[in-house]
Structure formats: structure tokens, C-alpha cells
Amino acid sequence: MTNFIEILIRGLMLGSVYALVGMGLTLVWGVVGIVNIAHGEFVMLGAYLAFWAFSLIHFNPLLSVALAIPIFFFAGMTIHKRITERLTKAPELSALILTFGMSILIWNLAQFFWTNTYRSVPYLTGSFPFFGLVFAKSKTVSFFLALGITAALFAFLKYSRLGKGIRATSQNSEVALVCGINTMRMRAVTFGMGIALAGAAGTIVSLQWVIFPQMGASYVSKAFAIVVLGGLGNIQGALAGGLIIGVLESLTTQYWSAKMAQIIPSMTILLILLLKPTGLFKK
């Protein structure tokens, strides 16, 4: 029983980080209307940011989250203004193809500059006991970081002026426009936030897993499963979806095999689309 609870909690910890990636994807999809296939590449870039900051100047990897959020936010806004903004009125397929190309470009550049060597950030290793359960330090810290960012995101969207403008734009962009909201700017800010969430998630995963140029692929597939689970554009749904995927992965790894855990995202997408295409949660 203690073992089961431990596995469950590990799943939630894992899922909290997946949720960050998923929330970024669903936010951009819902508000900007762009399916960003390159979303996972920003997780990878975030992980490399933490790695290089740590190995070059011994920058504390826990603080690299704070570094990543503004950097990725402004990078995301710039990418949107220069490249993806023109896609908001184009057919969805154009966005798919463009961001797919972007994804390939980014991980190839990463491979070119940083090689295929597996990297890791040796910080906060080891584990600690907690009421008879055992948890990895890095994963526990990651969990709280992810929860903190999630809470900040929710509060921002609910209470801040900009957050309300973003919600208004996503729920009815015509009415938002006639309220005097610059919806184009809202979309750029949202794109930046989506990329910032991916980058932040990247710095967090650098604490727990190996870093390599193609690592984004597994995160983007999980993020898609999360978006499908939670319902398109549904942020709370994505949080729940992320936790569900994390727990499923943790349980499958423990009671079946790590290989089987790899098929969870695609199985989830398949089942949800067959049984409840609007996602598990009402918006």
C-alpha cells in the first residue's frame, strides 16, 4: 500500500511538469489558434539553458526557471510577431506545417551546436524519507516549482488586467476588439506565455532527466495527449490532464514496464478521441 501511494505521488510530481508543457500548448492553441508542433523544442531549449548556465557559470538550476521565463517569453513574442502571426488567419494546416518545420530546424541546430551527447545537471541528487515513503529530492523540488508556476498562471489569467484581456480574446475576439482590446497584442503575449511555460518546464526537467536535442518529441506528444484530455484551450483541463498522464505513466512503469509507459500519450489520444472527443472536462 505504501508502495502504491508512493507511486501515485511520484506520478503526480511527474504530471505537474507535464501539465506545464500541456498548459502552454493549450493556451496558445485556444487563444492564438496555432497548433505549435515545435512546442517540445522549447522544453529542450529550456533544459539546455539550465544545463549551460549550470556548467559554464555554475548558475543555480533552481534559479534558472526565473531566468528562463522572461527569456522565453520575449523570444516567443518575437517569434510570433516575425513568423507565426501571419498564420492566425491562415488554414490550420499551414500552422502545422510551419511549426513542424520549425521543430525540425530547432532540434537540428541543437544537434549541430551541442552534439548528441546526453547531458544532465548533477544538482540535488539523492532522496529523502517522508513518513515511511521515499522521494527523490530533485523531483520533489520540481513538483513545487511546477505548482508555483501553475498557481501564478491561474492567478494571472483570473485577476490581472492582461489575463482578463487574454481570456476575453479567446472567448470572443470580435467583442474583445470592440471593447478596445488590441487582440493582436493579446495573441502575441499569449504565444510568449506558452513558450515561457515550455521553457520553464525545460529547466525543471533538467533536474531530473537527461538532456539531448531530440528530447522535445516525447514532451510534445504528452502535451498533445494532455490537450486532448483536458479539452482544447481548457487550462484547468490541461492541469488535470497533465496529472492524469503523469500518474498513468508512473503506474504503468511500475506494474508493467517502462516501454509500455511510452505508449500512454498516443493511447490516451486515441481513446479520448473515440469516446469523448471534447475532452474529459466541461469548459
Binding site: 488586467r161 482578463k164 481570456r167 476575453a168 472567448q171 470572443n172
Partner: peptide, 16 residues
């Protein structure tokens, strides 16, 4: 479609 379905009356007035 004249409203933001998921937003409250107060939020509509804020947006206005």
C-alpha cells in the same frame, strides 16, 4: 455572440 461566455458580469463591465 455578444458575450464572453465564461466571464462574469463584473468582468464584462471591466472589459467594457
Amino acid at each position: 455572440r455578444v458575450v464572453f461566455p465564461d466571464m462574469t458580469v463584473q468582468e464584462h463591465l471591466d472589459m467594457g
